[in-house]
Write a protein that binds this DNA or RNA. Structure first.
Length: 486
RNA sequence: UCCCCGAUAGCUCAGUCGGUAGAGCAAGCGGCUGUUAACCGCUGGGUCGUAGGUUCGAGUCCUACUCGGGGAGCCA
């Protein structure tokens, strides 16, 4: 366990003036809590969670610095010079730096504690005004305090799990020789038709230049309509068709007026794209990928996952453990429809070959029929995008969706159509103008290769991992219709 | 965007048949205690989401709007 760390510069400037001449190692709470930290002289810095006074001549302070779920208990004796003037007035939310020796704790619940030689108050938090109380708050209320909710146990845990997942994403692809690539965030074409897009413009909206009753985009910044990306897939294909295996990882924007617990207007998406991969290879990558993420979270975020399991959803740990050890069920769309029709279950929306599966159908498959993630593939061409590879039956395309219990679709992907003539006829069928996609078609015109890829919604994965019911609670600053505070 | 539900103290909620508001927690003060969601006592704290309407009288009934939640569609 590494105990030395770089102190935040700002805090140090604020506090160093009053620090005694003795030296202390700046240490994270996570490190100080380890039994082997006993005997070290440390400086712990963070926010007070609670204070308890003892008439035995000292107060207990619980300090959290976000390095782990748990706090470090500080023993602040009445003999400290600022005990009456400051320490007795500390409460939830105050920021402090504590210098002292790490000692074995004589109480229950922690191995170590800090016997304070100095307690420096950096910032006060008026208990009459500070919103966070020493009690449970609803997630809805905490959402109104997005600037303070990272200081709570649950949202601190979410931040750490989110970080762990992002690290796993990079590790997984980097170890397998993928290149991390960056598609544009501003895009000029509504390539995929994957929902409404946010417009990007420098026009003065009070006086937009008009031409024949329409905005004259020739005068706009990019000399044409521009949007925020809804997917980096088409650009990722360009890069894959030169570099082999690539992945993107960045923000994605959808202006869809979706008001659900599973949709955000701004979310993070991972999109691997692999040249010389077919749909079977693609499914294997998706499965290995999810298992790696879940496995890493279990091994690196044990305390945080324990919190989710105890206070949010008591099945999450068991579910992740089972998935890591199991094999995903793979079946065609056609087989899935067959299972649903023969289930005897009365669905609100009847199942029929050719229609898109509803939430209730996906949930039946993942939660009842298989009780595990399910990969569905070979979907009817009518309900999937133009770029997905046509099967020989002429009716289905090489699409795949990875479905998980509760959250539903967590990954959507396909093998891409690499045959120029087939792709062009598919575009015409769907009333898309091939001329607009000239560069996309060039990839098939010059040195085309079979390739495949998928998209994974980061927040959907986090929802699944943590059991959090609302996607707005697994991203620090959720953007949704009518909501962009903070 | 559609359907349903909700909005009362800092937070979570109760409030009967329409008659000017209550609890728990939090906070302040005091007590007790190597405590750890600490505990015990006292005190303060409200334009009942906003705007109209019905009524002698509205937290309560009606309408619209705003915000929040659940479900649906779209999807990741």
């Amino acid at each position: 366990m590494e105990i030395l760390s770089t102190p935040p510069a700002l805090i140090d400037e604020v506090c160093m003036a009053s620090v005694s001449s003795e030296t202390y190692e700046v240490a994270a709470v996570a490190a100080v809590r380890q039994p082997d930290a006993v005997g070290r002289r440390v400086r712990a810095q963070g926010w007070v969670r609670t204070r308890r006074d003892s008439k035995a001549g000292f107060s207990f302070l619980e300090i959290n610095d976000g390095s782990c779920l748990a706090n470090i208990q500080v023993i602040a004796e009445t003999s400290l010079p600022n005990y009456e003037s400051e320490i007795k007035k500390l409460g939830p939310g105050c920021s402090v730096a504590v210098c002292g020796e790490v000692v074995a704790s004589s109480g229950q619940g922690q191995a170590t504690e800090i016997k304070a030689q100095e307690v420096i108050v950096c910032g006060w938090a008026d208990p009459e005004m500070y919103p966070l109380q020493k009690k449970r708050h609803t997630f809805e209320k905490l959402r109104e305090w997005a600037h303070l909710r990272p200081r709570t146990n649950t949202f601190g845990a979410i931040a750490r799990v989110r970080n762990c997942v992002c690290r796993s994403i990079h590790d997984f692809f980097q170890e397998r020789g993928f290149l991390y690539v960056h598609p544009p965030i501003i895009t000029a074409s509504d390539c995929e038709g994957a929902g409404a897009m946010f417009k990007v413009t420098t026009f003065d909206l009070a006086k937009v230049p008009m031409q024949n009753g329409k905005p004259d985009f020739a005068q706009d910044f990019f000399h044409r309509p521009a949007f925020l990306t809804v997917s980096g897939q088409l650009e990722a294909e360009i890069l894959a068709c030169a570099l082999g295996k690539v992945y993107t990882f960045g923000p994605t924007f959808r202006a869809e007026n979706s008001n659900t617990s599973r949709h955000l207007s701004e979310f993070w998406m991972v999109e691997p794209e692999m040249a010389f991969f077919d749909l079977t290879d693609n499914m294997q990558v998706a499965e290995d990928f999810l298992k790696r993420i879940f496995g890493d979270v279990l091994s690196r975020c044990g305390d945080d996952m324990k919190l989710f399991n105890e206070h949010v959803d008591n099945t999450v740990v068991e579910t992740l453990e089972r998935i890591v050890a199991s094999r995903f069920h793979r079946l065609t769309y056609t087989d899935a429809v067959d299972i649903l029709q023969r289930s005897g279950r009365k669905f609100e929306f009847p199942v029929e070959w050719g229609v898109d599966l509803q939430s209730e159908h996906e949930r039946f498959l993942t939660e009842e029929e298989f009780k595990s993630p399910v990969i569905l593939y070979d979907y009817p061409k009518e309900i999937k995008a133009f770029y997905m590879r046509m099967n020989d039956d002429g009716k289905t395309v090489r699409a795949m969706d990875v479905l998980v219990p509760k959250v539903g679709e967590i990954i959507g992907g396909s093998q891409r159509e690499e045959r120029l003539d087939v792709l062009e006829s598919r575009m015409r069928e769907m009333n898309l103008d091939p001329a607009v996609y000239w560069w996309y078609l060039d990839l098939r015109r010059f040195g085309t290769v079979p390739h495949a890829g998928f998209g994974l919604g980061l927040e959907r994965v986090l929802q699944f991992i943590t059991g959090m019911g609302n996607i707005r609670d697994v991203i620090p600053f959720p953007r949704t219709p009518g909501s962009a505070e903070f």
